[in-house]
């Protein structure tokens, strides 16, 4: 009986065949089951012996069945996995891929650098009062710099509103509504009446910073900008100052950034395209806040001093990514934005 069953198990190579073997050899009507039932009729001495033998046979058969079942299952799974194989190199590109504009992500990156220093991010309107865009910043009605900045004026001219020419009115607004210490960065969209071409745009983006506190000097301005340069371009970066003129700062400086490609290293600088062999690239303007601006904005210049700086976001992008045509940033071709993903 037992050998017969074991032979049948060995011969079954599907789960269905094994099921039949189970019914035939250990089922209710199997010879083993019948034998078991007949054990009751045997004399007690023989009963024990017979019971033992039937039990052993059943155990051996069940063990064999379990082993064979596992074997067959594994084989069937193996076969199924083979038949279900696919070409995983087929493209699964059914979902459109979104992306964020680098002006947005760079502005956020810069904001994060300043927030990490404890600064805050301030914002303001783009159609701005003339007084806040010019007068409060020491650009009086006859100031030569006021004609230098070619301004979009809102109709009618007596409405005394402009499209802000810089984000500096946000600084004025902050000083007008808060007491120092003030440490703010102002990223935003600004406007000048330049015709759009490869290197000019009537709409562009900048980030300006303002710090007003007791005891701030131009040295703190330099320290902040050096840190900013390192946070964006990595260790070893630095800035340098050249004298310049801005009405809202005095003294004022142009700020150059160590060339982030050649680092002004003697063997690399001569052939560097980014800085054109200068070793430095122009990065923005800065200076010590003119006390006249503090007075107009309600900050006591005897007690407080401060510094301000501004850099162009669009130009930082075109220079860093070697984008020859500024118009690429604004015409909305999805191929421009897509490579940037959601973070820079």
């Amino acid at each position: 009986m037992r050998d017969e069953a074991l032979t049948a198990i060995a011969g079954a190579d599907t789960l269905d065949a094994l099921k039949q073997v189970r019914i035939d050899h250990v089922g209710d009507r199997s010879p083993l089951a019948l034998a078991n039932r007949e054990i009751g009729a045997l004399p007690p001495q023989a009963r024990k012996d017979a019971g033992q033998r039937v039990g052993q046979a059943r155990g051996a058969i069940n063990q064999a069945l379990a082993a064979k079942t596992a074997e067959v299952e594994a084989a069937e799974e193996e076969r199924a996995l083979v038949t279900e194989s696919v070409d995983v190199t087929l493209p699964w590109d059914v979902q459109p891929v979104g992306a964020r504009h680098p002006i947005t992500t760079l502005s956020e990156h810069i904001a994060d650098i300043f927030v990490a220093m404890g600064w805050e991010i301030a914002e303001g309107p783009e159609v701005e009062a003339e007084w806040l865009n010019f007068d409060a910043l020491n650009l009086g009605p006859d100031h030569p710099a006021r004609t230098m900045q070619d301004t979009f004026w809102v109709t009618p001219e007596r409405a005394a509103m402009v499209l802000r020419t810089h984000t500096s009115p946000v600084q004025a607004r902050t000083m007008l509504t808060r007491q120092p210490p003030i440490y703010i960065a102002c990223p935003g969209r600004v406007f000048r009446t330049d015709e759009l071409d490869a290197t000019h745009s009537p709409v562009f983006h900048q980030v300006e910073g303002l710090a007003i506190d007791e005891g701030l000097s131009m040295g703190h301005l330099k320290g902040t900008l050096d840190h900013f340069a390192r946070a964006i371009y990595g260790d070893g970066m630095t800035t340098r100052f050249r004298p310049s003129y801005f009405p809202f700062t005095e003294p004022s400086a142009e700020m150059d950034l160590l060339c982030y490609v050649c680092h002004n290293e003697p063997d690399a600088v001569a052939d560097c395209r980014t800085c054109k062999g200068e070793g430095w690239v122009e990065w923005g303007g800065c200076g010590v806040v003119n006390p006249r601006v503090l007075i107009a904005c309600g900050v006591d210049p005897e007690r407080y001093s401060g510094f301000a700086f501004g850099i162009g976001i669009d130009r930082t992008i075109t220079s860093r990514y070697d984008i020859a045509d500024l118009r690429d940033l604004f015409d909305g071709d999805i191929r421009f934005t897509q490579p940037f993903g959601v973070e820079l």
């Binding site: 927030v115 220093m117 404890g118 600064w119 805050e120 210490p181 440490y183 710090a211 506190d213 701030l216 000097s217 131009m218 040295g219 703190h220 301005l221 330099k222 320290g223 902040t224 050096d226 840190h227 630095t238 340098r240 100052f241 050249r242 004298p243 400086a253």
Partner: peptide
């Protein structure tokens, strides 16, 4: 202008 030192100011804790 090249004599200006580089000192990082400490802003108060921001929000």
């Amino acid at each position: 202008y090249d004599q200006v030192p580089s000192i990082l100011p400490t802003a108060p804790a921001g929000r």
